[in-house]
Design a protein around this nucleic acid. Structure first.
Lengths: 247, 247
DNA sequence: ATCTGTCGTGCCACATTGTGGAACGCTGTG
DNA sequence: CACAGCGTTCCACAATGTGGCACGACAGAT
């Protein structure tokens, strides 16, 4: 369904570029203006887009989308529970903090962020997805999935994103064991070069992993010696979020 | 674009009914299973849906949608800021609390809810829209819009939804003046019969209204005498949310 | 005033695209 | 063992979306 796929792409582009015009989107996708225009009008009629308040030829995301949320986040207790602990962690370490949730067993999706004020910092867009086996948040979650779920994920293979990516199954399984012992997962340049992170999982009452918090930083600021201390801090933050969420 | 419109409807239905099967959706919309199935697969390929973790024939909203948010809510600080104050307000008054945001200048959209535990209670679905001139949340916001924006809204007319709806311009303008003085807006059966509400606005730093919180209740529990006290409580909750959001 | 470039919008013939009835394979049940 | 109900697949048909083109509005330069 070409038109549907394209409409969703347009919707995502509007979310990033808002407030945005027909022409800008047409260039962005290299599509005829008329096609983009029709798409925008359709999305508008469905209540998903609205005209910008100042400039009526610019488009924005409408509030309707807020009704569409993953069940795990209904009531948005995750956001609410995570916000303050994330900010405190950010202030404590002065690095960017990410909150990522597990999407199916497919990938991790960045859903919230607390930026540090350094000149050089890592940057992940909200909504960005990343693989389970090659990121700190992914491994933090992976380490707490049920055995058959882990098998399912690993069965899809371990694509490499650079030299540092772990592509060997046994090595990865050993690492997951380590993650369970330590309470935190580490990623050093395994997904994006020069991006390192330390993450800990946020669990449901029954132990199912739902999401993870991560401190991420450029490789230049990754200090092996401070790792245990930093790891403990991240794990404490994750535990606090879990606690707040479950009351 | 029929297929696009329908896909978005399906997406919204999945959000409400998740985790949901093809058949359930087909019945819900009275559509051929094959059509629904194709739509679900397309939405899945686009990353907006995922198979349920337990039952792979059930569908859920994927985390991707979290990347698509109105600009005013980027960082999702509204939800996070509102959650706790809403719950406390709910506990204090034991009535259902709604959080609604202004969508363009078109309407208010319910985006979050804290239910009370009474047998009889008001019910608004998350995602429901309502007019600005005939609801408490709408009037709370309307009272703080700029003059030319108010004119624009009122120029579209004041459709009636029953006897109690204010359809006279001057009466409404006087009421908005009152709302500014009191700090809260009241709706007694003006939109839905037997549904009353008291709402207060959540503002941006520059005073622009962004959203509103409301206590809503059946007419039978609306007590004229307690109105000022209840109004003050709601206004305090809104002020606290505004404060938290802006740090 | 006039020209020119750029914008958002509206049109319409064409064929690509989505449609939905029918049939399939599977699972649990009476 | 037949049956009912499920999710899934297929395919001929025509309804549907496509995108080149042209229009009117606007802004800046001549």
């Amino acid at each position: 369904m070409k038109s549907v796929t394209r409409s969703l792409r347009v919707l995502e582009a509007v979310a990033q570029l808002q407030p945005v015009t027909v022409g800008e989107l047409a260039k962005h996708f290299d599509l005829p203006k008329s096609t983009v225009q029709r798409t925008l009008v359709t999305l508008h009629e469905a209540g998903w887009l609205r005209a910008s308040r100042g400039d009526t030829t610019r488009w924005e995301i409408g509030a309707r989308v807020l009704a569409v949320r993953p069940a795990a986040l209904q009531g948005s207790t995750l956001f609410a529970a995570a916000r303050e602990p994330m900010m405190r962690l950010r202030d404590a370490v002065n690095e960017t903090i990410h909150l990522s949730v597990l999407d199916g067993l497919q990938s991790m999706v960045v859903v919230d962020r607390a930026d540090c004020d350094r000149a050089v910092r890592t940057f992940h867009q909200i909504g960005d997805t990343s693989p389970l086996h090659a990121t700190a948040v992914g491994k933090a979650v992976l380490a707490h999935l049920r055995a058959h779920e882990v098998d399912e994920v690993l069965a899809r293979g371990l694509p490499s994103y650079g030299e540092a990516t772990v592509t060997d199954l046994d090595t990865l399984r050993a690492e997951l064991e380590q993650v369970r012992r330590d309470g935190y997962a580490v990623n050093r340049n395994q997904y994006r070069t020069d991006v390192c992170a330390i993450a800990a999982p946020i669990l449901e009452r029954d132990g199912t992993p739902l999401a993870a918090v991560a401190v991420s930083m450029p490789d230049s600021r990754f200090d092996e010696d401070r790792l245990p201390e930093l790891g403990r801090t991240v794990a404490e933050t994750a535990a606090e979020i879990t606690g707040r969420r479950l009351g």
